[in-house]
Amino acid sequence: MRHPSSLKQEFLKKWIMGLQRCTSSSKKTMTILERKKAIKLSADLAMASARNGTTCWSRALIANASRDHDSRILAEKILGPESESLKKASTMSLIFNNRRIRSKKILKRSCSVRRVRKSLPHQKVFANSIAKRLVKKRTHILKSLVPGGEYMDEISLIEETLDYIAYLRAQVDVMRCVASATQLVNRNGD
């Protein structure tokens, strides 16, 4: 784990670079929603590229950003020159990951089916099964929250969540202080 301040610096640098690239290319005025989207996307991508594509969530974030059409253009703008290599790596690894994990999932499903059949006659693990179901539900939710989480097993999901939380914190901190600084400037300006 790197030092948090250096992480923030890198994130801010990338974010500003991305925003500059984004705005310099589009001359027309944007609505507030468009601006918001651009800001959010650039922040996310900056966060992901600050991680350098070493973690699943960052790769998934980049891959997701470049998936649907209108955000892809934006993402390409934001990511700029290094976008191609980064994106290619991330999508490739994601596909590879998908395949591997999908096969794992199939295996798991078949195993679990058998286990359920075995354990159904014994009703003594009833409370245990309730707890398990609760955990499973929450794990599912967490998987939907962490980018690329649906392709992870539980151990890597928790690892990625750890990393993701650290980066989200840095992102929130930086964005918050930028926002407050902007507000201050605006107030002084007005």
Binding site: L19, T23, I32, K36, I39, K40, L168, A179, T182, Q183
Partner: peptide, 23 residues
Amino acid sequence: LQRQVEFLSMKLAAVNPRLDFNI
């Protein structure tokens, strides 16, 4: 955290309404 990011990006977008990309 994710909502905060959303909110902050919204705020940043709202705080700079005059210019396109005041930021």
